[in-house]
Simulated scan of single mutants.
Amino acid sequence: MTVKVHVKNNRWAEGSFPNTPEGEEVFTITRERFDTAQTQHPDVVGKLDPFIDWDTDNWQNSMADAEVLLTWNMPTENLTQVAPNLKWIHCIGAGVEHMLPMDWLPDSVTLTNNKGVHAAKAGEFGLMAILMLHSHMPAIVTNQRKGLYESLYCSPIAGKTVVVLGTGSLGGSGAKMIKPLGVNVIGVNRSGRDVEGCDRCVPTAQLDEVLPLADYLLIATPDTPETRGLLDRRRLDLMKPTAGIINIGREAVMDYDALCDKLDAGSLGGAILDVFDPEPIAADSRLWDTKNLIITPHVSADDGDAYIPLTLGLFFQNMELFLAGKPLLNPIDPKLGY
Rank of each mutant, 00 (worst) to 15 (best):
G95C: 12
K121R: 15
P106C: 08
N85V: 00
G147V: 06
T56K: 09
P156A: 10
A66T: 00
V109H: 06
T142F: 02
I52Y: 05
W54F: 15
T167H: 11
T71R: 00
E124V: 05
D35L: 06
A37T: 01
N85I: 00
T36H: 08
E67N: 02
L165E: 04
T56V: 12
S108V: 08
N73K: 03
L127H: 07
V45S: 11
L170F: 09
I157P: 02
Q81Y: 05
E77Y: 05
L69P: 01
H136C: 02
V45L: 14
G174W: 13
L70Y: 00
P50L: 06
S173K: 09
N113C: 03
N78G: 04
H98E: 10
D49E: 15
H41W: 15
I157D: 02
G172V: 12
T80L: 01
L152M: 15
W104M: 10
V141A: 07
N61I: 04
N78C: 01
G172N: 12
L86M: 11
G159S: 08
W72S: 01
N114P: 00
W54T: 06
A120M: 07
T36E: 14
S169A: 14
Y149L: 14
E77F: 05
M74V: 00
H136F: 02
E124N: 08
L100W: 13
K160T: 07
M137V: 13
L131I: 04
A94P: 09
L100S: 12
A139G: 03
L111H: 02
S173M: 06
T161I: 09
T39L: 15
P156T: 07
T167S: 10
E150I: 03
E67V: 00
V82I: 12
V44E: 13
M102S: 07
L69K: 01
K121E: 11
V141M: 11
L133C: 05
F51Y: 13
W54C: 04
S173P: 07
W54G: 03
S62G: 04
Q60L: 11
N113W: 02
V163W: 12
F51W: 10
K87S: 10
T110P: 05
K115L: 07
L48A: 09
T112Y: 00
Q40T: 06
G171F: 10
G116L: 08
G95D: 12
I92A: 03
I140F: 08
T36R: 14
T36V: 08
A120K: 13
L152S: 11
D49Y: 08
A66L: 00
R145L: 11
D55H: 05
G174R: 13
D57T: 15
D55Q: 07
D103N: 15
G171H: 09
E67W: 01
H41M: 11
Q38L: 15
L165N: 04
E150C: 01
E67K: 04
L100E: 13
T56S: 09
M99F: 07
H136R: 13
I52N: 04
G46N: 13
A119W: 08
Q81T: 13
S151C: 03
H118E: 15
N61A: 14
G95Y: 13
V162L: 14
N61Q: 14
C91P: 03
P42K: 10
G159T: 05
E77L: 05
M63S: 03
L127R: 06
K87C: 04
K47D: 05
D65P: 01
K47Q: 14
A129D: 08
S108G: 09
K160A: 10
G147T: 07
V96S: 12
